[in-house]
Amino acid sequence: MLSSPRLEKVTPDNVEAACGLRIRPDQEGLVAPVARSLAEAYVQPEIAWPRLVYDGEHLVGFVMAFFDVRFNPDDPDDRLRSGLWRLNIAADHQGRGYGRFAVESVCEEIRRRGQSRVTVTWVPGEHGPERFYQRLGFRLTGETSGDEVVGELDLPEV
């Protein structure tokens, strides 16, 4: 049960634990490991926002947002997007609200940066996160990004 979840930056003190975070085995082909996400954040620091999800002193997940990216830079009509890039919740902490907390935190950051829409992509499939994202209000756009489908959520005005 959620007690006091929070996001923390990845630091030299917690990076090893972050890289050791494990999702369920049936999800491994659906989301990249945290180490790959951190490597991608390292080479794209202008767009990546990696954070660890803690509950008390326990590391329970990893989330990474992206800001102001065009999915298809060759298409002049493609708009800038911001959204959820990665979400990894530890296998033994899934189903307890940490994923929702992480997504809501990303939405707050995107709203803070002046945007009103959140984008997410996922690999469709039996063990994929589609139902999770739809329960949070994301709707399929009909677009794809590589082998992933694209979902979007309009953020309410505050």
Rank of each mutant, 00 (worst) to 15 (best):
E104L: 14
S82V: 09
Q115C: 06
H127F: 09
V31I: 12
F138I: 02
A91C: 11
S3L: 05
T119A: 11
G97C: 00
F132C: 08
G97I: 00
F132G: 14
L52I: 14
G99Y: 06
E16N: 13
P45K: 06
R131T: 05
V103I: 11
D92A: 10
L80Y: 08
T121N: 02
Q44L: 04
Q94K: 07
D75E: 12
R112L: 08
I89W: 03
R139N: 14
T121L: 04
F71V: 00
R131C: 15
V158S: 09
E57M: 10
Y98W: 07
P45W: 11
C107M: 05
R139Y: 01
G137C: 05
E152Q: 02
P156A: 07
L52M: 12
E157A: 04
D92E: 09
L140E: 13
G61C: 12
G99A: 02
R86Y: 11
E152K: 03
T141H: 04
V69G: 00
G95H: 11
A102M: 14
S116D: 11
R111W: 04
S4Q: 12
T144N: 01
R81H: 12
Q94H: 04
D77E: 14
G99D: 06
E143G: 01
I23T: 09
R86W: 05
R139M: 11
E104I: 02
N14C: 01
P5F: 01
G128N: 10
Q94T: 13
F132T: 15
A48G: 03
T141N: 01
E28H: 15
C107E: 15
Y98V: 09
A32H: 10
W49R: 12
G83Y: 03
R135W: 00
P124M: 02
A18V: 00
Y54R: 08
Y133I: 00
V158Y: 06
